[in-house]
C-alpha cells in the first residue's frame, strides 16, 4: 500500500506492506537509522519518534497509521544547522554513554519541553520512564533535560 508521511519536514511516499511497522519504515524504507530497535514489546522505547509532536514507540505503530501525519526523528532535531538545546545538553552533561537509547531520550525530552518549559525532576523522570537506559543510571539524562529547559527559558 502507498504510505505518505512527512518525515522531518520532507514529504515521502512509499509503497509498503500493510503490516510494516513504522520503525522499519523509518529505518529501512526511508533509511534514517538514528531510530533504533531494542525489544519487541513496546518496553524499551529506543524506537521512539514523534508523531505529530507526540512521542510514540514506532515498533508498535504501523507505517500505515502514520499515513498523512508528521514524523520527527533524531535526524530532524537539528534546525537551520543548529543543534537542538536537548542535543547540546546531552553532550555537555554526559547524558549518554553507548548512545543507543539517546535519540529516543532526546526526542522525549524535547517533546516534554514543548509543553512544560520548567519541569521538576519528578516530571522529567516520569516523562522518560517509558525509555530504558542501561548505561547512565538516568541521573545525567535528567540533568541534561534540566539544562536544556534552563537554556530554553533563557532564550
Amino acid at each position: 500500500m502507498e504510505v505518505s508521511v512527512t518525515i522531518n519536514g520532507t514529504a515521502q511516499s512509499h509503497d509498503v506492506e500493510a503490516r510494516q511497522l513504522l520503525v522499519d519504515f523509518v529505518r529501512s524504507t526511508v533509511g534514517l537509522t538514528g531510530t533504533h530497535i531494542g525489544c519487541d514489546t513496546t518496553s524499551c522505547g529506543v524506537c521512539t519518534v514523534l508523531l505529530d509532536g507526540v512521542p510514540v514507540k514506532a515498533c508498535t505503530v504501523l507505517a500505515a497509521q502514520a499515513d498523512g501525519h508528521e514524523v520527527t526523528t533524531v535526524e530532524g532535531l537539528k534546525a537551520d544547522g543548529e543543534l537542538h538545546a536537548v542535543q547540546k545538553a546531552f553532550k555537555e552533561n554526559h547524558g549518554l554513554q553507548c548512545g543507543f537509547c539517546t535519540p529516543a531520550m532526546m526526542l522525549v525530552g524535547a517533546a516534554l519541553l514543548e509543553s512544560n518549559d520548567d519541569p521538576t525532576e519528578d516530571e522529567i523522570r516520569w516523562a522518560i520512564s517509558g525509555n530504558l537506559c542501561r548505561c547512565t543510571g538516568y541521573m545525567n539524562i535528567v540533568k541534561s533535560i534540566q539544562a536544556a529547559a534552563a537554556e530554553g527559558r533563557a532564550q
Binding site: 537509522t33 538514528g34 533524531v74 543543534l83 555537555e92 554526559h94 549518554l96
Partner: peptide, 18 residues
C-alpha cells in the same frame, strides 16, 4: 566532553543493524 557524542546525538552512530 566526549568525542564520540557528536555523531551519537545526531543519530549518526553506526550500529550493527545499520
Amino acid at each position: 566532553l566526549r568525542r564520540e557524542d557528536d555523531r551519537l546525538i545526531e543519530g549518526q552512530g553506526d550500529f550493527l543493524d545499520d
